[in-house]
Amino acid sequence: MRRRNDSATAAPEHGAPPGRTQRGIQSVEVGGRLLRALADARAPLGATDLAASGDIPSSQAHAYLVSLTRLGLIKRDALSGRYEPGPLALRLGLLHLAQQPALREAVPRAAALAHSLNCSVALCIAGPQGPTIVRYEHASLPLHVNLHVGTVMSLRATSTGRVFCAHLAPDALDDILARQTAQPVWRGTRGAAGASAAPPENPAPPAPDAAFLETLEAIRTRGYELGIDAPSPGVSSVCVPVLGPQRELGLSLTAIGASGALDVRPNGAVVRALRDAAAEIAAAAFHTTPTCPE
């Protein structure tokens, strides 16, 4: 009977002087290769593809997949048989995010906004598939919309998505657009928030949407975006970005409520409260000077 190799291996010691190593467990590192392969793929993978991507023989990978599934680091879809990140992986990812200064500053403010404005508030960051909710504060009044932690927002159809389109770097935006639309990517010109991006060497149709690019420039100018009765009828939203020292997007604050009840006026209470909160978060997280919204 072949004994599984769980022997210790030498690995560079984190933070140690060059040449100094510490012992590690080889089987843990092999399992880590499978997790890294799944993360790099950014999509569910079958056992054979996962083993090949992790450079592990299929016969050996099976035992690791069983253990990783038991731990909750991955899970297997019963219908497709493909593996994807599990609940423990999600918890670890959220724990990592919670240590980020901008999100740490934003969480208590999101709860306060939901209470004072009587609406739901979502905090989103840029995930591989698009703007992803990492914190969701529910309103006291019921809201008929299916939003929760992990929801990926549409780039074009939601106020949050359009804010991300307006502030993400062109290359990052191209990647996310390609995943969401499965269409050829485009690169729009940037306003004051970023440098202009040259078109790709072999541009493919469709051509850049001039009207959409104008919308993104308007978002950068006014500092917020609205979604009225869209994408869900009867539900409206206001989204404001939290920007770093170089005008890079840290995260977004989105207030969501019933149309008619949510104040979507440009100088209304919701827009003012979100912009004030975004300025406070940026000042605390990035040590920027708070600016008074116009």
Rank of each mutant, 00 (worst) to 15 (best):
residue 257 G to T: 04
residue 63 A to K: 12
residue 167 H to T: 03
residue 142 P to V: 00
residue 142 P to W: 00
residue 72 G to S: 03
residue 194 G to C: 13
residue 17 P to E: 00
residue 273 A to R: 01
residue 142 P to C: 01
residue 293 P to G: 10
residue 47 A to R: 12
residue 124 C to K: 02
residue 90 L to R: 12
residue 59 S to V: 11
residue 286 F to I: 04
residue 45 L to H: 05
residue 252 S to A: 14
residue 91 R to D: 09
residue 192 A to Y: 12
residue 189 T to A: 14
residue 159 S to N: 07
residue 10 A to G: 11
residue 254 T to W: 00
residue 157 A to R: 14
residue 6 D to Y: 11
residue 182 A to I: 01
residue 199 P to N: 13
residue 254 T to M: 08
residue 21 T to K: 10
residue 82 R to N: 08
residue 156 R to A: 15
residue 224 Y to S: 04
residue 166 A to D: 04
residue 146 N to G: 06
residue 199 P to G: 12
residue 278 A to R: 01
residue 37 A to R: 00
residue 163 V to Q: 06
residue 45 L to M: 12
residue 99 Q to T: 08
residue 34 L to Y: 10
residue 149 V to G: 15
residue 214 E to M: 11
residue 8 A to S: 12
residue 133 I to N: 00
residue 132 T to N: 08
residue 155 L to S: 00
residue 189 T to R: 15
residue 2 R to G: 03
residue 272 R to H: 14
residue 285 A to E: 05
residue 99 Q to M: 09
residue 258 A to L: 09
residue 127 G to W: 03
residue 266 P to W: 08
residue 95 L to R: 05
residue 171 D to A: 15
residue 125 I to W: 05
residue 119 C to T: 14
residue 186 W to M: 12
residue 15 G to H: 07
residue 172 A to K: 08
residue 182 A to N: 02
residue 258 A to K: 06
residue 60 Q to L: 09
residue 192 A to C: 11
residue 87 P to N: 02
residue 215 T to G: 13
residue 140 S to P: 05
residue 88 L to F: 07
residue 11 A to D: 03
residue 111 A to F: 15
residue 187 R to M: 02
residue 106 A to K: 02
residue 101 P to A: 14
residue 9 T to L: 10
residue 196 S to A: 15
residue 257 G to R: 02
residue 243 L to N: 03
residue 178 A to E: 06
residue 18 P to T: 02
residue 165 C to N: 04
residue 210 A to Y: 11
residue 195 A to E: 09
residue 153 M to Y: 02
residue 61 A to C: 09
residue 76 R to A: 12
residue 161 G to R: 08
residue 287 H to Q: 15
residue 156 R to C: 06
residue 70 R to P: 01
